[in-house]
Design a protein around this nucleic acid. Structure first.
Lengths: 243, 243
DNA sequence: CTCTGTACCCTTGTATACTAGGGTCCTATC
DNA sequence: GATAGGACCCTAGTATACAAGGGTACAGAG
């Protein structure tokens, strides 16, 4: 039988040099810390799709027992970020294109609905707060820190959820965003980042002008445009994809 | 300190008569079976909000060890259906009204977006399939089986996701629906069920007529109407609610 | 009678041991 | 030499043992 992972059995001879920064805090639940560390590593693609997640190796790496590691893996498997094959192994899930399309659908319609609520409550203060976040995105581009850029991008979208007084739906949007986040960080051309900033600003401009319909149109264009970046999917990316 | 559960320490003297039907199948992962059984019991409110979920009692009840039970509880805690208080206990989560509002927002906009896609692909065959499901809902009302009614209601909404060729977003809608499902099954007046059927049919009629805008309007009315059923929240329901 | 301290039992969190099944590689046989 | 079979090691799934902290009830002191 063929395993989905292209790397197979290496890793024993190598040193366990997993690039997961981690410092154990005995005062907090260990399982939560392992979960957060693993999730951050997967979403930021420091752990590439297909990477083997052996429970025992994680135990050695984190210096804890299998129980909290398993707990973390179960949670990540529920989120679709890890595939567990009993008696075979656990692997960072490939990026499934069908899944990405579905998540884009969810994210797009939720963010547009949030935007409609935001438009009703738009104020100069909110505009200033949003533009301040965009400014930090610009700064992230200038220092060449794409990870920081994406972090600030999340902050901007989260702020909109707060503006709409729908803070509770942010986790759902974020989970939908996580899948595409891996695509962006893997393949997203860096030269598009300034364009993203401009599109963000164009939405804010429409809101400042009190034109909700225009803001809607511009956000929809922005979201679809980002998505189409990967329309001609280069063959080199195949190892990380599925479906 | 005050625990959220109103029942406290009883349960030892009583027999463990948890109303969770369960038959262990040793060929399937035990953890999955426990998860499914617990989730079904919670969503169908056979396990009321606030009920204590002691891991040890679950072990005795299911006849398994703590490990798979813990795995199931972790997953349900992630979904917000169980609250875990370390060193104190785990309890079926109360119905948080703020959460219900957010989930309704998510469900409404996603279902409306799905409807728009369905309208583009509407055929006589799909209409017949949908109406067949509605017919089973009518049958469920006639035999007085609200659990079956809700099961068929889920089937109808799932069918729409399939019609829209967006099967992948159904889990997200379903998770949003789960919260309100508990409200409906607890407090939903049975006399409203026939009205629900009529509203479902009115949407199908609009689709048959090829009027997507009318279908949109009627579905939005239907979803909001269901939600407003609980607008004057009787004080008797307070023990099961929070926020 | 009131208050405080302590012992016990409950809880979840963590660690470890054992089970069952799949992959691989080596060996023996044809 | 090619192929089949078996031993070994890996995996995740499950069971059990231990640790740490909170709740409660009871007993003793003031």
């Amino acid at each position: 039988m063929s395993l989905p992972a292209p790397l197979a059995s290496s890793g024993d001879t190598e040193t366990d040099s997993l690039e997961i920064e981690f410092h154990l805090d005995r005062k907090r639940p260990v399982a939560d810390q392992v979960y957060e560390a693993l999730k951050a590593a997967i979403v930021s693609v420091r752990l590439l799709p297909g990477t083997s997640i052996s429970e025992n190796r994680m135990c050695r790496h984190f210096g804890v027992s299998r129980t909290p590691v398993r707990s973390a893996i179960v949670r990540l498997a529920d989120e679709g970020l890890i595939d567990v094959y009993p008696q075979q192994g656990s692997f960072v899930a490939p990026i499934r294109l069908a899944d990405v399309y579905d998540r884009h659908f969810i994210r797009k319609h939720l963010e547009l609905a949030v935007l409609a609520e935001v438009a009703k409550r738009w104020t100069a203060a909110k505009s200033a707060e949003a533009r301040a976040i965009v400014a930090t995105q610009v700064a992230a581009i200038e220092v060449g820190d794409p990870a920081l850029f994406h972090e600030r991008d999340e902050a901007l979208h989260a702020a909109f959820a707060v503006f709409a007084e729908r803070e509770g739906i942010w986790p759902t949007i974020q989970m939908a965003k996580a899948r595409m986040s891996r695509l962006h960080r893997l393949f997203g051309p860096p030269e598009r980042l300034p364009v993203v900033v401009e599109e963000h600003l164009s939405v804010l401009d429409a809101l400042d002008a009190g034109d909700a319909a225009l803001a809607h149109q511009r956000l929809e264009y922005h979201l679809d445009k980002i998505f189409e970046t990967f329309d001609p999917m280069p063959e080199a990316y195949r190892p990380y994809l599925a479906d």
